[in-house]
Every structure is written in C-alpha cells, then in structure tokens.
C-alpha cells in the first residue's frame, strides 16, 4: 500500500518513509519483506516517534517539507477503505467479537480524501491547501500535560528494562504509562501484544481483559467514548 504510493510520488520529489513501532524488529520483518519497499523502511523499537512527534496510534503520519519542517502534525493516516467497514457481521458472531467489530466500524476516516490530499501536496508543495504553516502545525498537535511526559518516560524506561532485565521488570512501568496517557494506543498495544491469551489469539485486539494489565482494546475503546474517538482524523476542510 505505502510502496505503491511511494512509487507514484517518488518522481514528484516525495519519499515515503515507513517506521514500525516494534520492540522486536523480527515481528515487523515478514510485513516488510512482503511489501518489498524501495523506500526507507525503519524500526523504532522504543517508540521515539511518540515523544518527538506526538504519535499515539497506528497508522499515523506527519508531512515534512524540503527544509525539514513539518507541514502536517501527527494524524491518522489511512489511505485505503478498511474491508471491516462494509463487512456484514454474521448473526452467530460471538458477542465480544460483535462488539469489537461494531466499535471498529465507528472509527472515522476519509482514506480516499487523505490519499488525494497527499498527492496534491506532492504536486504543489507549499501551494497545496493541505500544507499548514508552522504555527498551525504546532497548534493542531495534541496537548501534552506533564502526565504525558511521565507516561513517555515510563514507557521508555519499561522498554529499556524489557531488554536489560526482562519483561517482569517492564510491566509496572508500562502499566503506569497506560494509566497516565490513556489515549496513547501504541503504549498499550505494544505491551498487550507481548501477552498471549489462553486461546493463543494472534491479535491483541481480540484479547479479553488480561490478568497482567487488566485492560483490553475493546474495553478501553468503549471507556474512551467509543470507536468514533479512536483516531485523530485529519481535518482536510
């Protein structure tokens, strides 16, 4: 998906750079190898992008101009309509899965318009109506209270301890990060995905509330106001 966009934009002077927020690069490898990217494809083991650019979920993107200046802050970056959006939910679907799919379908997004906006910017640069001034970029970035700074420090320290002392040392710090910055899904999903359910479900999204964190994707989405609040949707009007 991103490779296709990169191939289209590369002759227009625009490069796509993908960054996987993955503690273990080997988890990202199969996806990278399947995509065969000709663009830079990087790994951010300790979620540096959360601290430096305000990333709180995936996929999210920032736009950077030729001088290294942001022209759009961190915002949801879907460029394809999710198949989940139009999927019928069969009657016999288990209740929890049904509830999860219902919330997932509420996640807002205008992928076709967002893709068109990227192409417009690639063509017109600073003259694109979608390229924002530095002041607008800062203003549109999310607020950062001291609790979010503590969450970021806790998450980063947890990552360091995970690699030097093991997962048990990391868990209390990651829990603290989850509590302090509830809207940051990269802290939560990164940690959840290291736990396995009794059923061995492959995705953390479908996990029940676990013993380790006492939280789950579905319960947290509902607690934060439902799928409609899940993504920081780009304002393209």
């Amino acid at each position: 998906m991103w490779q296709e966009l990169h191939a289209e934009l590369e002759p227009k002077g625009t490069t796509v750079v993908t960054v996987a927020l993955d503690l273990d690069p080997e988890k990202a490898r199969p996806f990278i190898e399947a995509a065969s990217p000709t663009h830079p494809s990087l790994i951010d083991r300790h979620h540096h992008l959360d601290r430096s650019l305000g990333i709180v979920n995936v996929p999210m993107a920032v736009w950077i101009d030729e001088t290294g200046t942001l022209v759009r802050p961190a915002e949801a970056a879907s460029i394809k309509v999710s198949a989940m959006r139009s999927m019928e939910i069969p009657e016999d679907t288990p209740d929890r899965v049904k509830a999860l799919l219902t919330e997932a379908r509420k996640i807002p997004g205008r992928p076709e318009e967002y893709r068109a906006a990227i192409v417009d910017w690639a063509n017109k640069g600073a003259d694109s109506a979608f390229a924002l001034s530095p002041e607008e970029v800062i203003e549109r970035s999310q607020g950062r209270p001291i609790e979010h700074s503590e969450a970021a420090a806790s998450f980063e320290l947890g990552c360091h301890l995970y690699e030097t002392a093991g997962k048990d040392a990391a868990i209390p710090l990651w829990k603290r990060a989850h509590e302090l910055h509830r809207e940051n899904w990269t802290y939560k999903r990164q940690a959840w995905t290291l736990e396995t359910t009794a059923e061995g479900e492959p995705s953390d999204l479908f996990q029940e509330v676990g013993d380790v964190y006492g939280t789950s994707w579905l319960d947290d989405v509902v607690a934060l106001g439902g799928g409609e609040n899940y993504a920081i949707v780009p304002d393209l009007d």
């Binding site: 993107a61 736009w63 950077i64 101009d65």
Partner: peptide, 10 residues
C-alpha cells in the same frame, strides 16, 4: 518532501 508513516506489526 517526506511522508513519514508510523505503523506496527501488532
């Protein structure tokens, strides 16, 4: 110009 996209395997 750079489009920097964050994604993850999880």
């Amino acid at each position: 110009k750079v489009l920097l996209v964050a994604w993850a395997s999880w």
